[in-house]
Design a protein around this nucleic acid. Structure first.
Lengths: 186, 186, 186, 186
DNA sequence: GATGAATGAGTCTTCATTCAT
DNA sequence: AATGAATGAAGACTCATTCAT
């Protein structure tokens, strides 16, 4: 079963563990053990634990980015797209035992010194903002408030992930979705 | 040295450090050193690092709880109260170098096994929900949607803290405030 | 229920714990907690943990000493007395979940520096030797080998306690009893 | 410094210290210091302090096992073998400053939870029993009482180690030897 | 490309004891 | 006679990283 490539095995294992328990709560010992690799092999492929973290976040971003562009061009109303995107979050929350946003969770334990990680977070968040702003533009082309409302929905989306994780419940996602639709429909 | 009040000194020191860098990133060695106490003194007053964390969160809750009841009874409109509460968050974010909600940050690194911590989080979040719901009730007495809208503002508030922390910027708080006012004014 | 006298409560609690788990495996924190006393009260009554240990061993000795003198003067044959004494050990081993001789167990973790403890051990062992030698004298008055055979039974008795504890079984006591009777009957 | 063989150095150092002062009285700090190793190197080779203890006991067993098989096949009478085996103990007691049986000493501080240690003890003791029983069989082939007498000598042997340690004297070994010869010669 | 052994600094926690009240 | 707070040293164990092979 063991994948041929050590680097991939490490990244895959770490991705799962980092997401499940949080970056700070997972040691590289556990990672290399579960990835069935040697300590030194790890450092052959990644500069440090922090480097692995960046690779993980980059990975997550690349995948979600594609999904968003697709959804943006889908053949349905912006409101419907909002609904779909929040429902997607609902599913993910359930599947991951209520672990919220990898970026926010990692940001909560990373100081100023973690430049690479902070950059990943900022880039990903910017991409999300752009997504919601684009949706607003679709809903109300040329509207002056689009970027502001887009940001508001972005904040709602983030709060939904945070509180669904905190309370191990889906209602924050559902209420956030309702609020987002209210805001975009103004 | 400074014999009496070791417990208070520890709690105060830990409160600051936990908030600044996150529960998981602060060791008790650093805490006792900065609190000028012996390690064993720490364990005389707190059962464990987790116990200290609970004491910290309890403390934060007790203070903020009072502020909310006061604001609830203040002599101004609910919309004005929303504004005041979000502005308060703005100030706190600035003062704390953009560290967001202690509960969410701690929740991000605490597993199911941390029963006491999880309970603190749930209790605090419930108290916040009640606060926003009460504001909606003040704005629109007897309105059917009050609890739903209150929860939506709660999620906005949480997202504002999360993203202000992530992006080291205040705009999420400001946009969340605007959105909250939109929602409560429907 | 709590006995009035703190000193007695401490001694009683420690006696039980030391016997059950061994002197080195029990901390004074646990003792004072279970005795419902304050830390400082402990040091009011005992000079140190080692002092408490000595008091415990002294106590055990005083009780067993009486039992031996009584048995020595009982109205039955020396062989019968041997049998009774080993059967008594059998009962004690069962009742104490196979914890053997308090003296040997304590001796196993006490270095040369523990003068008081070592003296307790030596005194107690000497008393046991005297007992078995006296039994031999009763069996065979004036016999030249009495002190030698007494010592041999003493060693058997000790081995029985050691191995019953090691193997959590009573057969060592029973075989030792048979051997003792063989030896005394020569 | 002395890079290779860290595992061996640790085991050797621990063996000496555990035997000299008892398992519970020796910390791993002292072990790694005297073995000139880093703490983490210790945990690379041994799962825990308990794991190291098991390795030590296994080691002791393996060596003594060989000596017993050899002696069993030696070209002299069973009584002579008894004498040799007890004289060997005498020498060891002198050399080790009167530290007795490693297994009994460790058993005195190990609770039910120490499964691995308990198993080492039981296995070793069984091997000793088998040895003494085999000697009886050599002395009196086909004799019905062989296993019983073997066990009695086993108990004597154990008591000799215990009391030589307790009293810092060799007479218990000598008397036990005499008694063993009496018993096997019946 | 891969590895097992080694490491120093760190983790949280408990030890037996003493102090001022 | 009794107490709760304070302590330095030690307990077992884990961290992320580097090295020689």
């Amino acid at each position: 079963m063991r994948k041929p490539n050590a680097k991939e095995r490490i990244l895959e294992t770490a991705s799962q563990l980092f997401h499940e328990r949080g970056y700070s709560e997972v040691g590289i010992n556990e990672i290399i053990e579960k990835a069935e690799t040697a300590k030194a092999s790890f450092y052959q492929h990644f500069s440090s634990k922090e480097g692995l973290c960046e690779a993980w976040l980059q990975n997550v971003h690349d995948r979600s980015e594609g999904a968003r562009s697709e959804l943006l061009e889908a053949d349905c109303s912006p409101v419907e797209k909002i609904r779909i995107y929040f429902e997607r979050m609902e599913r993910i929350m359930k599947e991951s035992n209520f672990r919220g946003c990898p970026y926010s969770n990692t940001g909560a334990v990373s100081g100023e010194e973690c430049g690479g990680i902070r950059k990943q977070i900022e880039d990903h968040k910017q991409s999300l903002r752009d997504f919601f702003r684009a949706l607003c533009e679709q809903q109300n082309p040329g509207g002056e408030e689009n970027s502001s409302v887009g940001d508001q929905i972005f904040v709602l989306f983030s709060g939904a992930a945070t509180e669904a994780q905190n309370l191990r419940d889906l209602w924050p996602v559902r209420e956030a979705c309702k609020a987002a639709i209210t805001l975009i429909s103004q």
